[in-house]
Design a protein around this nucleic acid. Structure first.
Lengths: 241, 241
DNA sequence: ACCATGCTATTGTATATACAACATGTAAGC
DNA sequence: GCTTACATGTTGTATATACAATAGCATGGT
């Protein structure tokens, strides 16, 4: 594969630091001559490096090593049941509440519904090998998911159900450390209050906000792991909008 | 742009759900005929959709709508100083400790150094508009960053300094909720113990582990925000390896 | 000094062609 | 029935060519 050969060569120059940020990269024609390939092949190598964010291309000007974007890392948030099964542990869930309630103002706002709308509400405790590791307190938009209350959430988690029912398009997360409320302590079978990692998640479908969930995990039994590779500051062209 | 026209058309089919997961996509030749373009142009449209993860291509078999990958989200972890400046707030830092110490066994292991090696150690409190929002307790590999102790970390944060000095290649993070130690409470000017969000970060350069940092944030004054878009289950070809 | 013009290098788009590598279904042979 | 061989369709790689769009520089006119 000739184009890959060129990519590797450029890769080495950039990763070794021999070519620092903004250093010009040989042009398509130059690479074609140097590696004895056609311009289209050289072009492909540069194009793929640009897609990967290692270089920035500029019509009329040339190709340059992309500036480092050091200050951001990506962390993966998984579905709790998946995470537990991934560890080859046993997962089971207990449905503490599954009801229709009048949305509090903050919840109504979060779901982008009028004040006082009645919404679905569920509270489910998730267990890993018999220990409570998450209480999932969730409010759901009844217009988008009418049959929510009829589900058996000991089988599939609400998140899995929502993924199936509506084409989820986006989600936002917020993580903080809190002390659990008395009620949360009960749901988590905690005898003493201990710091908890709390994830707030809002999910969207094309038609609006689907759900607002508060996931509370005892600090002693839950960690959020992540891994990151430093990337470069290329504006990845968004697929659409 | 003809190739973009084709992309848009396919995009609509997929996003609307008209073509569900695993549904076959017209072949390059078919698209070329349908849109009255050359195969190379049709190919580009399919290739870019594959790069974006919307379709999966299979030599000899065809192109298919990619399966949804619902259960993972990406969270962004930023440098604290950047985050504060992004909010247009005032950031300043106080160096509590900057010293050479003998690495404890766990630290030595984490830095992949022999037991008992002497390493650099710094403790810095970060303030946002005068309020302590993070205490950064960091151990640094002295072989990779010999001049660490001579820096003025009230100007540039250690993370920024390390990014400049060594080409950081990877990092791993772990997040948990904890109660701060008495010493951490002092560094954070906390009168009462309150739950803290603790991020443990290890950073690598090509030559090994550069640093191990424990970042502790008072739960009442810190949140980790993230945003996610649901993607599809395409194995993005890693740049190298 | 300043501005306009045009030249050149570079990347972007589009096409035509050839062959390689692979998957899958079909037909032939046993 | 089973396996093998082949034909066909598909994606992957590589090349040659043409023209468009842009950036940057140089030249020359005012």
């Amino acid at each position: 594969m000739k184009y890959d050969h060129i990519k590797q060569a450029l890769y080495r120059k950039i990763e070794s630091g021999e070519w620092p940020e903004h250093h010009p990269v040989s042009s398509e024609n130059q690479l074609a001559k140097d590696f004895n390939v056609s311009r289209m092949t050289a072009r492909r190598a540069l194009q793929e490096l640009a897609d990967e964010g290692l270089v920035v291309r500029n019509r009329g000007a040339g190709t340059f090593v992309a500036p480092l974007k050091s200050q951001s890392a990506l962390l993966t948030i998984r579905n709790i049941a998946d995470e537990i099964r991934l560890r080859k542990h046993r997962h089971h869930a207990v449905v503490q509440l599954l009801e229709e309630v009048e949305a509090e103002p903050s919840i109504a706002t979060s779901l982008e519904l009028p004040q006082g709308t009645r919404v679905w509400h569920s509270v489910i405790t998730h267990f890993e090998n018999g220990h409570a590791v998450q209480v999932e307190d969730r409010y759901v938009n009844p217009q988008l998911v009418p049959d929510y209350l009829d589900q058996d959430f000991t089988q599939a988690t609400p998140h899995e159900y929502l993924c199936e029912m509506t084409p989820l398009t986006q989600a936002s997360h917020m993580i903080e450390a809190v002390l659990p409320t008395r009620q949360q302590q009960i749901w988590l079978s905690m005898s003493m209050p201990e710091p908890c990692l709390q994830v707030q998640r809002r999910t969207w479908s094309r038609d609006g906000v689907v759900s607002h969930a508060v996931l509370t995990h005892p600090g002693s039994r839950f960690r959020l792991g992540g891994h990151m590779t430093f990337t470069r500051r290329t504006p990845r062209s968004k697929p659409q909008e």
